[in-house]
Nucleic acid binder design. Structure first.
Lengths: 345, 345
DNA sequence: TTGTACGCGTTATCAG
DNA sequence: CTGATAACGCGTACAA
């Protein structure tokens, strides 16, 4: 075989291949791609045909390098299994689409190492900015310390008003207050709080709201329990532990920091002893997960405006990227109460 | 201020800025970045310091352009709310990490337009390949028709053995069979199938398995119901409709194509009439979602090895990208039965 | 070990 | 409307 004929094109065709096949200059091909109006219809047609024949796909890297920027931003989620984050993604995507941007997702699984890694990866990608969902104060400090200024980041689901970053979060203190106030309104007085490790900022804040509501009512918490985590199994263990106090009348209301926790508690309570929710004890969760409405006894909960959070966070980020004079803001969204069976009286 | 001193660097610093500050050539900086062993320790230190001072971040696009390739692949998920897909992502990420690759995620929401768009986006990004989760046969045809060869794609959660693509899926026919056989083993004989639109390949396959199991037992299905979709509310409506036949003894077993469907059915059945599951009727779902184990009456179900699917699919993709001689394969994974309360006897 | 120069695939500018 | 050409920021032979 002759050299010219045998030389296959193993790598994808480039713009010059298209230009050659169409018998035009590469500039015209580029124009046909990005400014169709600048090129004559007949030429356009030849170019389009050539593109089709070759299966030409523009090289994004080269394009980005020449154009000098991306039209997308990154979103790092901490828990794909939690519907809150899925809602956040939905909201962010909506905000992006409205401005002709795209969102690139990454899953940190709540691990600092991965949060870090993806922030770096996105920085190299030169995305316009990154949206980082965070729920651990120590992670925030680590990221903030390591993070070079210049790359806009807005923290989601985390509140910080020291002005170093924009943050958008849902007011967990208010949520904790809301939940507790609901129990108080339905006549409960001997209330305990159940919620995971304090390094989880959302949980710590919910507890604060819990304490404030009790304080305003002139009451003291019966107990504050901090299980290892906020899952169903943790709730189940706490439920076992609470069975006696409930039967003895020492506890008549439980504020849980998550629906899974609440579901576990309710399950344990009704399995182990003939304790009936809500007759003998009210239980309220947090998140408005499927776990809450799907439970045998539908569980009252606090609903978080996740999609709005994502939408708003993306807006903040875009403002930071585009606005010349940008002031970091810490936005807080208000959660709402959803009363269900588990707190009826 | 002198010109040299006053000139701020509004855009991010480049490799040459680092070189200048460190007093070395750009080649050394590049080496310090990519081949640390090729550069003298003392120089290395100066360079590292300069990088730190400037907050230098390599430009991924330029890097990729020069190096001629990415070290990542794309994964397009069709439903972030479904734990199966989250598991798939986890598996794919594990496979990627083992090979030093990263995974970029995108969310198609099951919409053809978005599946299409992200396939294109990933192609421009020059990812090594893309993993596409699909559950609609018509989407498969559309994508396959439009898709230019060259860009490796493996379809996940979809089976096609025409050899055009690698596909990795979970054997839904076997799952349907498994579920039905379980009901038969527990003595049920008058069984109906409930499952969404037939364009959903997984659902259609589960029904096939259902029919095969019945056929082998010499039985005919009492009914095959196809609600509009596979959600809880669809199940609830079907449940209302099935209440009479169940009470009349015409139906003693229900195979549902999803856990949500099953949960809705059970809920409707127990709300409307004093029908007890599993005493009067057995119900089995599919997916092993939270909806199944979290239900008032824990629902038996078919569990799908999602993480394994993602891991395996990524392996297939990598094999296709790297292997010189690659044969497209259609791999099928086996689901397993999880018996719970709703089918006890 | 370090510096120089070229190439990667596109876009944008500016003459024709 | 079209064509040549200079960036874009970095990797890497190759020479020093």
């Amino acid at each position: 075989m002759s050299d010219a004929l045998s030389r296959e094109e193993p790598s994808s065709p480039g713009i010059k291949d298209v230009a050659a096949l169409a018998g035009v200059s590469i500039a015209s091909v580029s124009n046909a791609l990005n400014h169709r109006e600048r090129v004559a219809p007949s030429t356009l047609e030849r170019i389009d045909r050539a593109i089709g024949m070759l299966g030409y796909i523009p090289n994004g890297a080269a394009r980005q390098l020449a154009a000098g920027g991306t039209r997308s931003f990154g979103l790092i989620l901490s828990d794909l299994g939690n519907s809150l984050f899925v809602d956040i993604a939905r909201g962010a995507e909506r905000a992006a689409e409205e401005r002709g941007l795209s969102v690139v997702l990454a899953n940190s699984d709540g691990k600092l190492e991965r949060e870090d890694r993806y922030v770096g990866l996105f920085a190299e990608t030169r995305v316009r900015g990154v949206l980082l969902t965070l729920n651990d104060a120590s992670h925030f400090r680590a990221i903030a310390g390591r993070h070079a200024y210049g790359q806009p980041i807005v923290m989601l689901n985390f509140h910080d008003d020291t002005g170093r970053y924009c943050t958008a979060s849902i007011d967990n203190e208010a949520g904790g207050y809301l939940a507790t106030a609901h129990l108080l309104e339905t006549g409960r007085r001997r209330i305990v709080f159940v919620g995971g490790p304090d390094t989880l900022q959302p949980v710590a804040d919910r507890r604060l709201g819990f304490l404030r509501a009790l304080g305003e009512a002139g009451l003291a918490p019966v107990d504050v329990i901090a299980p290892a985590w906020v899952n169903r199994s943790d709730g189940w263990q706490v439920g076992r532990r609470l069975a006696d106090p409930v039967l003895d009348g020492e506890v008549d209301g439980i504020v849980a920091a998550s629906d899974l926790l609440a579901a576990g508690i309710v399950q344990a309570l009704s399995e182990i002893r003939p304790i009936s929710v809500p007759e003998t004890v009210s239980v309220i969760g947090y998140d408005n997960n499927q776990a809450a409405w799907d439970a045998p006894i539908p569980i009252s909960t606090i609903s978080q405006p996740g999609e709005e959070l994502g939408y708003l966070g993306a807006g903040l980020l875009i403002d930071e990227v585009e606005g010349a004079e940008h002031q970091h803001r810490a936005v807080r969204l208000a959660p709402t109460l959803i009363a269900r069976r588990s707190t009826e009286r």
